[in-house]
Design a binder for these strands. Structure first.
Length: 289
DNA sequence: CGTCCAGGTCTAC
DNA sequence: GGTAGACCTGGACGC
């Protein structure tokens, strides 16, 4: 293993970034081509860069993110570092959010660096994976994303590869069912440059509403998927409401029933961070502090 | 064996 | 605008 970079685990506002909380931030983070190894905590995943697939291992040491590779990354090193910056959202500033929740009984614990939603190197990957979480069990999501990574030779497949994959691959290998047509159409639109999903990352180019409308217009992306992807884009207003978050919220809040509008109202005081506050409230017990 | 539903979405009213 | 029904797949159930 060779160390190719050591990056300070600090956000744009100087706030701390918890490595453990970030790699455990949501269910998609450990999906293929990533692997999450516990004790010692190492987050591994493959990147396609400079025409080849490179395995990268990340761990935390003394407040820094240590990035290592098995083989020499060569010219791909800069691409890998840029992908990691995107994944950990080093450009995001959560310090105002932390100031807001510092004295909050429910969320005060999070100021030590929780709340960064680990993204994928591309928005395309985040959208495809999110579609693979819809209307199916988690084992099916794992099956689909495992097949995706195998198609990509160990990395997440390029849009071109997914566009060209056969019907048989979608049906018999990934077993994506009706989602296959959504993913292929999405891949075609991105490959043809008719659609630029990474443009949604720029906060100056699109406001939240424009991003939400763009996402909802994508095949297979509805309210749940749009809210989920927006969290990964660092747009934290929308709440991710689905068959996992709804009952989890009710259980934690001690409520028999709770309409979506009731849940939204309960988090409205967090303003543009309502969705993030909701998510942190639900995932506090994911790892012990 | 049939039915239901899982970290929903789409189409048609 | 809001609400049924269909939809790939495959576990988890009840009968």
């Amino acid at each position: 293993m060779r160390t190719i970079s050591e990056l300070p685990l600090r956000g744009a506002g100087g706030e701390p970034i918890s490595f453990a909380r970030t790699v455990h931030s949501h269910g998609c983070a450990p999906l293929p081509p990533a692997i999450l190894e516990p004790a010692p905590l190492v987050y591994k995943r493959s990147f396609r860069a400079a025409g080849r697939v490179i395995e990268v291992a990340m761990h935390e040491r003394d407040g820094r993110l240590i990035v290592q590779t098995v083989s020499s990354p060569g010219a791909a090193a800069a691409r890998i570092e840029a992908a990691i910056a995107r994944m950990f959202r080093f450009d995001a500033d959560l310090s105002q959010f932390y100031a807001r929740i510092a004295d909050d009984d429910d969320l005060g614990w999070a100021v030590r660096g929780a709340g960064r939603m680990l993204a994928s190197p591309t928005v395309f990957e985040d959208v495809v994976k999110t579609i693979c979480t819809t209307n199916c069990t988690w084992s099916a999501t794992v099956r689909m994303t495992t097949a995706l990574s195998e198609l990509g030779g160990g990395a997440f497949p390029q849009p071109e590869e997914l566009m060209a994959a056969s019907d048989a691959w979608y049906r018999d290998v990934a077993k994506m069912g009706y989602r296959g047509a959504y993913v292929r159409e999405l891949a075609r639109a991105v490959a043809s440059e008719e659609l630029n999903l990474d443009a949604l990352l720029d906060p100056r180019r699109f406001d939240d509403q424009a991003v939400e409308q763009s996402l909802l217009a994508l095949p297979g992306v509805g309210p749940y998927a749009a809210a989920h992807v927006m969290q990964l884009l660092g747009r934290h207003r929308q709440l991710v409401l689905d068959s996992w978050t709804r009952p989890k919220y009710r259980r934690l809040a001690g409520m028999k029933r709770a309409k979506d509008s009731t849940i939204r109202r309960a988090f409205a005081r967090y303003g543009e961070y309502a969705g993030l506050a909701f998510w942190l409230y639900l995932t506090r017990d994911w790892i012990e502090e």
